[in-house]
Structures are given as C-alpha cells and as structure tokens.
Nucleic acid binder design. Structure first.
Length: 598
RNA sequence: GCGCCCGUAGCUCAGGCGGAUAGAGCAACGGAUUUCUAAUCCGUAGGUCGCAGGUUCGAGUCCUGCCGGGCGUGCCA
C-alpha cells in the first residue's frame, strides 16, 4: 500500500508542475504542525513561488485548482503565506484501515522496490573480555537497523567483526597451555557444549586475562612462552592454534548468551573476526604500494588521503603497517571492506560504532575509494553514536572505575522490574512474574537507548527507563497489555473478535479520539521510513510512544466492549491494529518483548 | 593549534530539503476512578532555542565570528 504522504506528495507536485510549467517542483508534504491546520500540509509552494517570482498565495490557489484529491481529502485550503492544508476524509481512513486489516502481516507497508544487499557491521566485542556497557549501543542499534532493513525486503548480511587477534593472545594461549594439555582440548571438543559452559579454567575470562597479564609482567619464562605462542600463531602453527581456538570458543559462548538475553539477532554464522583477514593483510598493503598510494613514512607504511591534516597542517597518515611490520585495524578494516564488496557483493556497508571513530572511517572510506576498491554506487555509512554516561555525566563505570558488565546491568534491570511486578501484581504466578520482569527490564534498557538520539551521549538511569510514565518500555508494554486485556474480557462476554473483524466492510469513525488514533495508525510506514533513512531508531520509538498515548486517550474516552453494536466493530479494529502495530514495532523491529499481562 | 560533535523549559531530551504560535516526558500545581488494568487520562504553569552579526517573505534549522562543553588529531581499537 502506498504511503498516504507519498500519494499526496505525488499529486500535489504534479499540480505544481501543471501550474508553472517546470518540472523541479517538490510539494514537501509534512504532517501538520497543528491539528487546526488539518492532518498534512504542503510547504513547497512558497519556495517554488520564489523561484518563479510570483505571489506564493496566488500560486497556491492555482495549484489547488489543478489538484484532485477528492478520494483522500476534504477540499484543500490555502493558508498563511502559501501553505496548502489537507484534512483526510473519514472514508479514506476507513478504507486504509480495512485494507491493513485484510493484509495485516505487513501492516500496510510495502517492500523496497529494489532490494539491496546490505552488510551491517556491528557489536564486534573483544575476545577475552566480557561484554560491557560500551558494547550495548553498537549491538542493539545495529540489530535494529538489520531488523528494519530485513522487514523492508533487503538482503541483510550481519557481520560481527570480533576482536579475536592481537598480541595479547600470546599470553592467553601460554597460560591456557599451562593449565591444561592439548589432549584435554581434544577431549573438551568431543563434548563441546558442556565444556564451553562448565569449564572452570576459562569460566571467568577476565580473571584469566588478568592472571595472564600479571604473569607475563613478572615471569620471564612465561613471557618467553607467550612470545613463542604469538609467533606460532602468526605462522599458523596447529599447536598454538588449538589453544587459541579454545579461548575464542569459550568467549563466543559468553557473548552469544548476552545476545540471547538481549534479543539480538546475531548468530554464529555472522561472526567473521579480525583473524579471518590475516592472509589478506599483506595483499592489501602490497596492492596499495603497487598502486602508488602507500608509501613509507617514519618507518611505517601509510596512505595519505586528500583533505586530512594533522596538527602541523601536514597530510594525515592512514597507517596500514607499523614500523615493526605489524598490521593495524586500518589494514584489517580495508581487508574486510574488500571482502564485503567482492565476496558478499554488498551494495551498501553500514558500520555501527561510536562517534570517536569518525575520523578513522572517513579515512577508511577515502582510501578504499582511492584504491578503487569500492565503486561510487556502493554506499558506505558510518552510523555513529554517543557514550552512555553515569548520573555524574561521565562515562558509565563501576565505583572501582571498571566498565560495567552488560550481564550485570541487565540482571539489575530485570531485578528492579521484578520488584515492581511483585508490588503491582503479587497474584501472578512466579513464572509469569519472571517472564514479565525479563521483558520489562531488558526492554527498558534497550528502549531507553533507542529513544535517545543516537548521536548524543545519554545518561543511564534505571529509575527513568523503568518509569511507567513517559517514553519508556513499560509504558509501551502496558498499553499493549491493556489491549490484550480487552481481548480476554471479550471472550468472557461471548464477543467473537475474529468474527467481527473478519466480515468488516465499513467503519464508523466519529469520535475525535477515534479519528485521532485512526489517522496515526496509517502513518506507521512514515515512521519506519524516517527511522531507516538516517538510521535513527528514536524516530520509531517516538512514533510508538505517540501511538500509545493516542490509544490511551481513546481507551479512556471510548468504551469498546460496551459500545453500541454500530460502533463496536470499529473500536475493536482500532484496538486490534494498535496492538499489532505496537507489537510489530517493539518486538519485530526493536527486539523488545511484549507481554499479555503486566 | 586544527578537525568533528554538541549547547533548546528547573531536570532529561525531541525537533524529518528553512515554514504558521518551538514540542514531549520528569519534577510542580489542579482535576478525573459505580466503567475494558489509575502502571492511566485531562488541564495549568514553565523558553533571550549559548552570544553577536548575516542570508531570506520567513532561521532552533543555513553562513560568519565569539563563548562554553565533549571527542579526535602518526605507529591501540
């Protein structure tokens, strides 16, 4: 179904073309700034009047004369300096709602006309470290982008570019060997699932890391082993690789568990870590050298993309090989980018990382283009985001100054939600209380993140994200639960909702709260478009919140089950579509669970 | 020094190619419950959109300068 705003845009633009005889006419249709101006307004006439040097109000009148919107709107009105105000007809609204009712799987939203292959690089935790709050935003914003793109019909390829390579692995492997034997590992592998979760040695991967580091600094023999290990790994020796794989495996199982808890759609198959590109790194450097783009500078091999300056105003290097011969993340990212273009056939690549890496990605993209590794029709985007701050306005840390573990953060959110459920609904079964607490707690953390503009930092506050009022997950989930409650009540009153909705041919939309809700329901697609156009989930949460508010107003003003027979089907449909939209938005697009009762 | 991001109500934040009287939520105050979950709804109050210029019929939005904050700026990622 074509979005209402798109139809209006098309027809009004055409009327503008007819009025002035030139084709660069944009109607610029927007939702009205004030309900008294109607539902939508066209702002484009004033700009056009300037271009053709005519009176904007007169031109607007002319455009309206050429305009046929009888099937959609009341007669358009020209207002102010040259706005065209549009008010939707209830019959049009009814048609749209009935159409969505018939094809409710997509809620009236069309797939993209041209599906693209889109690679989304997100989450990317480091092996041998627990996931902490710093990984939260990339993980869930990236997930949301993937979910929306998928829903719009694109071929989405998730890439979890984990940090599974680097010098620290020498000491980790060395310590692991000290604590176990190669035979143990073979034995472990036979019972893979169990040893991943039960193995004592690597249970606390961070403690393991600290122990390795401490031993590396104090024990010369051990340090020699570690260097041995790293050299072995770099040469691809099976002996050391076995230990490395074991460590990577354990670490992966840790964050896969976090993904499950978070409702994030990352799977094993999406993992392609830094180590996957090891063999490509020399090739990347060689090709850039051969192309005359890379040159030696102070012992390092660098590319100097145009337009980047350092402190002294000299060209800023993109270092792809250190003076000691080691490669950097710049090299790995270039290799990954080539893989995504050449092997994955990406039409677009989206990187979801924090804002501090902006310069890195600008340079990465510039170098890739210099090398002609990406053509102009491939869209490269850095979707960046700000930091999660504590109440004191500095990046969120524990009291001892460590990163807050994601697991602990989620556990606390669930625990807090649990105590609220206990308080509000002590009668629910323990299982139900737990299930609600998990949906609300995890949902609150994710929703709080999504509802903030991703480019700014935001202050993390359990109290705010778990509040029942305001733009929060609990408020959204409550609105949904209220609708489900009506449905349950209907059963006890022998009202067959399915039956009433199935045969529905006409609607009876009259009350302001009904119309208000109906008009907003048909705008779901606008919200999704806005959210994906700039990769901003907060547009989607803002829509859902306003929808829930409009529903709540409807709920207080318009009885559903007790409505007269001529009104009840209409109201049941409004309830049904609101529930479906909220559920779709929350659980399909944002990965936040809804609950039947709370 | 240079570059990027930001500065909007007491607090936390929205604000889609420049559009009409700048919006929410929290906190504050006042109302609403014989009614499908009051975890709600309705209302009141609260603003030099950091400052100063400029472009424009029109600027929170675009340009310039300044002030304040954050981040980045050659061998970490």
């Amino acid at each position: 179904m074509k979005p209402t705003i798109a139809i209006l845009e098309e027809r009004i633009s055409a009327a503008m073309v007819a009025a002035v005889g030139r084709d660069d006419c944009a109607a610029i249709v927007r939702p009205s700034t004030d309900p008294k101006f109607g539902d939508y307004q066209a702002n484009g006439v004033m700009a056009l009047a300037k271009k053709v040097k005519t009176n904007p109000r007169k031109l607007a009148e002319e455009v309206v004369k050429n305009l046929d919107l009888d099937d959609i709107c009341e007669p358009p009105e020209v207002a102010g300096p040259g706005f065209i105000n549009l008010r939707l007809k209830p019959e049009f609204l009814a048609d749209r709602l009935l159409e969505i009712n018939k094809t409710s799987a997509n809620l009236g939203i069309d797939k993209a006309a041209v599906p693209k292959t889109i690679v989304v690089d997100f989450s990317s935790p480091n092996i041998a470290k627990q996931m902490h709050v710093g990984h939260l935003r990339s993980t869930i914003i990236g997930d949301c982008i993937c979910r929306i793109l998928k829903f719009l019909g694109h071929n989405v390829i998730r890439q979890n570019h984990i940090g599974d390579w680097g010098t620290q692995f020498g000491m980790l492997c060395a310590l692991f060997r000290d604590k176990t034997t190669a035979e143990d590992i073979e034995e472990f592998k036979k019972i893979e699932d169990e040893w991943l979760s039960d193995d004592e040695i690597l249970k606390d991967i961070e403690a393991f890391y600290r122990e390795a580091k401490q031993k590396y600094d104090s024990d010369e023999d051990f340090a020699a082993d570690a260097r041995d290990a790293i050299a072995g790994l770099q040469k691809g020796q099976e002996y050391w690789k076995k230990y490395w794989q074991a460590i990577v495996g354990v670490s992966e199982s840790h964050y896969m568990e976090i993904y499950r808890n978070l409702g994030v759609t990352l799977r094993d198959k999406d993992i392609r870590g830094e180590s996957a590109y090891n063999d490509d790194l020399p090739v990347v450097v060689d090709e850039l050298k051969e192309a005359g783009l890379a040159k030696e500078s102070d012992g390092a091999i660098c590319v100097f993309p145009e337009g980047f300056k350092n402190k002294e105003g000299d060209p800023l290097p993109f270092i792809i090989c250190k003076s000691d011969g080691a490669y950097l993340y710049a090299t790995t990212d270039l290799a990954a980018l080539r893989y995504r273009v050449n092997e994955l056939k990406a039409n677009a690549i989206i990187y979801v990382t924090d804002a501090r890496q902006k310069l890195h990605f600008e340079m990465l993209f510039a170098v890739a283009k210099m090398a002609k590794w990406v053509s102009d029709d491939i869209e490269l985007s850095h979707v960046m985001f700000g930091s999660v701050l504590g109440e004191d306005g500095t990046p969120l840390k524990t009291r001892s100054g460590e990163n807050v573990k994601l697991k602990e953060l989620l556990d606390e959110a669930v625990e807090r939600a649990k105590s609220v459920v206990e308080e509000k609904n002590p009668n629910f079964s323990e299982d139900k209380k737990k299930q609600i607490a998990k949906a609300v707690g995890v949902g609150a953390v994710k929703y709080a993140d999504y509802s903030n503009n991703r480019t700014s930092d935001y202050v993390f506050s359990f109290d705010k994200m778990l509040a029942m009022d305001g733009n929060t997950a609990p408020y959204m989930q409550y609105a949904y639960a209220r609708i489900k409650s009506i449905e349950r009540k209907a059963q006890t009153k022998d009202v067959d909702i399915e039956d009433e909705l199935a045969g529905l041919q006409t609607l009876n939309l009259t009350e302001p709260a009904e119309l208000d809700l109906a008009k907003y329901l048909i705008r779901y697609g606008e919200a999704i478009q806005a959210a994906i156009a700039d990769y901003r989930p907060n547009y989607l949460t803002a829509y859902l919140y306003e929808l829930a508010q409009k529903f709540s107003a409807f709920y207080t003003n318009c009885p559903v089950l007790k409505a007269e027979p001529g009104k009840r089907p209409t109201r049941l449909l409004l309830c049904d579509l609101t529930a479906k939209t909220i559920k779709h938005g929350l659980s399909e697009l944002l990965g936040i669970e809804v609950v039947e009762q709370m």
